[in-house]
Design a binder for these strands. Structure first.
Lengths: 131, 131
DNA sequence: CAGGATCCGCCCAGATACTG
DNA sequence: CAGTATCTGGGCGGATCCTG
């Protein structure tokens, strides 16, 4: 490969690997962020999450949670009882992730109107173009 | 439907809409973040970006840039010359986005080893399970 | 209740060829 | 140089059915 010169994604490290990609693959995921933020408000059970996230399929919830557990962001606790009860909660690591996510949330809230306005302007300009 | 109670994605607004989704659809995108950060370092031409991002197809670069321009995050400037020259640069809005993105970057850099370790632990535990 | 397993459609992204 | 246009497949995610 010898990718010499300007490989410039987000502070790539010496290994030539990009740490941000690993994170973004999780953040970029449609559901992960939602779930992390939700769990930031407290422990939840599977079904609670299923209802709360709304729109997520059972399958996706399972897969997303598995990935989060694997990454050490979420703890899964099985209570031996009938009916079974499984609790999900953020790990310490997961809670630290909450900070930048909230920053992003605030940016989104602050600038959503700007983005919408920009889109409207852009689309109208494009429409005028075609006319 | 009547999803009254706990619909809890990221500070949903009165409209029932989630501003974060709009942002995440962009941030989550594999390339957008890379390009925004790249442009954070200065103006670039199409081909420069194509080389720098590395791995991105021409098509995806075009589509990504279009979306960013539409959202008012990036300016596209066509210089009437031969050969043609098109410059891309962040808008003021785009530069404000840089801040939370860098926060995320820093989180990623700081905790990448934690995540890797967690994954290793998880995978080894799973392997031991099967044995 | 908390998933696992399977099937399947659809969309997205890559590759390729062409153009102002 | 900076794109557009078209085809194509692989994968992601939903729906459905089943289990401890």
């Amino acid at each position: 490969m010898a990718v010499t010169h300007t490989r410039v994604p987000f502070t790539p490290d010496a290994d030539g690997d990009c740490p941000v990609r690993e994170v973004l693959d999780r953040v970029g995921d449609k559901w992960s962020v939602l779930i992390v933020v939700l769990l930031g408000r407290g422990t939840h059970r599977f079904t609670e999450l299923h209802r709360a996230v709304e729109g997520i399929s059972q399958r996706m919830l399972t897969l997303t949670l598995r990935a989060l557990v694997r990454d050490g962001l979420v703890n899964r606790t099985v209570h031996a009882s009938v009916p079974p009860r499984v609790d999900y909660e953020l790990t310490a690591l997961g809670r630290t992730l909450l900070v930048p996510l909230v920053a992003l949330d605030e940016w989104a809230s602050t600038h959503r109107d700007d983005i919408r306005a920009a889109r409207r302007r852009h689309d109208e300009a494009a429409a005028a173009e075609r006319a």
